[in-house]
Design a protein around this nucleic acid. Sequence first.
DNA 1: ACCCAAATTTGATCTGAGTCAATCGGCTTG
DNA 2: CAAGCCGATTGACTCAGATCAAATTTGGGT
Lengths: 237, 237
Amino acid sequence: MKPSVVMIEPNGHFCDDCAVRGAAVCSSLNAAELREFEHLGRRVHFGAGDTVFSEEDITTSFYNVLEGVMRLYKLLPDGRRQIVGFALPGDFLGMNLSGRHNFSADAIGVVTVCQFAKALFTRFIEDRPQLLRRINELAIRELSQARDHMVLLGRRSADEKVATFLLGWRERQVAIKGLSDTVPLPMSRQDIADYLGLTIETVSRTFTKLERQGVIEIIHGGISLLDPARVEAMAAA
Amino acid sequence: MKPSVVMIEPNGHFCDDCAVRGAAVCSSLNAAELREFEHLGRRVHFGAGDTVFSEEDITTSFYNVLEGVMRLYKLLPDGRRQIVGFALPGDFLGMNLSGRHNFSADAIGVVTVCQFAKALFTRFIEDRPQLLRRINELAIRELSQARDHMVLLGRRSADEKVATFLLGWRERQVAIKGLSDTVPLPMSRQDIADYLGLTIETVSRTFTKLERQGVIEIIHGGISLLDPARVEAMAAA
DNA sequence: ACCCAAATTTGATCTGAGTCAATCGGCTTG
DNA sequence: CAAGCCGATTGACTCAGATCAAATTTGGGT
């Protein structure tokens, strides 16, 4: 694990030009609060493959993803990996009860986060129930996604998993780029496999099978959905 | 699906003798608040197999489990089922963003819940950040459990799944009955299979295998851990 | 453009868990 | 107390996806 190459921007009034201001945790704050809030966080950049935090680390910061994609994962002692989710701009990371992150987070490609010192952030929340309510909403949304993913992991076939993944990923891109049949896949095949509870070979084979069936086209850095309806049919099963 | 056989107790001051008062969502309230709070909820009883709420139902109530065990699950269109968790006394159910429950909940055996009308409860929370904070804690705890379960579903073998389940279930009983090597299993083999992403046959075979190895003993209504250390070794793997 | 390392794809084979099909056992019911 | 039922167990066989092993492609650096 190489050390994180980190760049920290000078602190300042940067919420104004923040891409996720409307979607993120910050959307619950009014102008005055936001002014106070922006002094708590600082933008931090990570390079491809950098680890932002690790499973066993004591939580000292919370993170608001501003840009890029992160993989969130847990490892078994023998090295098996399960990716429990991908974090996109607007996602808020670091909440836990144990005082430790209970999963690890790597940057996939370049990532920018807004990093908050845990203590300061916790104090700031204390008399801002709106912010707490917003955080709670995000947690509940994640919980719902987690349950959906359990169904996928426990009860779906490889074909269904891959089809569901493509549609789900496309859906998440909507917020960022609008609906498109071209689905960019910044993560590796291994990441996809570890997210779906499959091997890299099965993911690869499934992609090629779908391509031969004319349902998708494997393009540089992603997948093009030639027949979205058929992908949906495969996912529903 | 048979109609729920429901008994509603007369409303009144019953928080005093509530078994979960210390553990549940209510633990965040002071005496005065609790007095007010108890008028919001009513105890409701369910019989074995009754459905408390269904996945597609519009959420009109929140539930605090007081007694018994519930299975929480999602169904695929073709009938495949994934149990996403079991609810025990102290668990709080019903939070969601969509306005619908996104999983179904059945009573396993007799269950008592404290049922709250959503609107009243939501209003009550509004100026009680303590309660909101408590609910948020429960959500975060569940999220952590959900991620652990994803690892189990996606990356563990049948043996590991069963061993992990037995230890996890034993652990949850601790809060109720203290640590014991006798693990009561109120749910059916099918429930266990649907929780672990296995078939009933595989669960059954794994139990018998463990019993033949002298690691567990299959007893009426549960399992006795003859060699807990070995079960732990199997679960860690 | 060329080289190397890493990622991906493809092929051949294996196996853990699923499927299909009897029993078995314990509980309820008449 | 026998019959019937339902959940659980057991056995035989199958198969989806894993594993092992090469190619092949891609991409970054010079």
